[in-house]
Amino acid sequence: MLSKEAIQKIDYELTKYPGNQRQAAVMSALRIVQTERGWLSNESITEVAQYLGMPEIAAMEVATFYNMYDLAPVGKYKISVCTNISCMLRDSDQIVNHLKTKLGVGFNEVTADGKYSLKEGECMGACGGAPLMIVNNHTMHEFLTPEKVDEILDDLQ
């Protein structure tokens, strides 16, 4: 069951669209539910589809099309590092390697304590701050150095 808070947030998103276009809010709705639950299970997708009155498979299409939806459990902190060209030119490799060694996991893996998972991201539209990463989809950290990564990880307790 969608939580009261989630429904409230989804209802706010629905105000942006004509009343007969509830499906339009699916991107937000999936985001809201994922933020609340950590990832999108099939049940979550079903609930969102039902709440918006759209075919479940259409909600599944959306959930599987956009990178930032997680269809499998991720760590408490999901770290996505951009490795695209602008970041790569500014040594995102070094950041990735640092993270991999420090966390002891590779891309698309979760640390044994379930705390972190690591993802390779595509361009995040902030290449001026390369190299960079986002934590849990919504917090961006730019101009990374291994030292700065350490500081950030220390703050994620």
């Binding site: 075919p55 498979i57 259409a58 599944m60 299409e61 599987t64 099309f65």
Partner: peptide
């Protein structure tokens, strides 16, 4: 009724 879809990208 949309019973099939193309998932993934």
């Amino acid at each position: 009724m949309m019973e099939l879809g193309m998932v993934g990208r």
